[in-house]
């Protein structure tokens, strides 16, 4: 599988991850090497095989849809300095 610096920067953008130029240089051949190995999977005899997203069959397991104890608003906000008026404060979403 061909991986060049342009593709690597696109993957990083999708992953919300800035990379330095040195990291791009290091990671590009490493990812190419690993993805080449991954491509071996195409040879596996999977015609008609259902994918397994869990190792065991999971029975339906639902809780009653009723209110229960949960974190208070103060507790939920206690782990960040980024808060205002009882809400999380994030970076700006749209430019004016």
């Amino acid at each position: 599988m061909d991986v060049d610096e342009k593709l690597l920067r696109q993957i990083a953008k999708n992953a919300r991850l800035h990379l330095s130029d040195a990291e791009v240089k290091t990671f590009t051949p490493q990812l190419a090497d690993v993805l080449k190995a991954f491509s071996k999977l195409k040879d596996a005899p999977t015609k008609g095989v259902e994918p397994a997203f869990h190792p065991i069959d999971l029975p339906a397991h639902e809780r009653k849809d009723s209110p229960g104890p949960c974190l208070s608003q103060d507790d939920a906000l206690s782990l960040t300095p980024h808060k205002k008026d009882g809400f999380f404060k994030g970076p700006k979403a749209i430019d004016k």
Binding site: L41, K42, A44, P45, T46, V49, E50, P51, A52, F53, P55
Partner: peptide
């Protein structure tokens, strides 16, 4: 494809 191979492995 990997999830299908996982089924074969199980």
């Amino acid at each position: 494809q990997a999830a299908k191979v996982r089924r074969l492995i199980i």
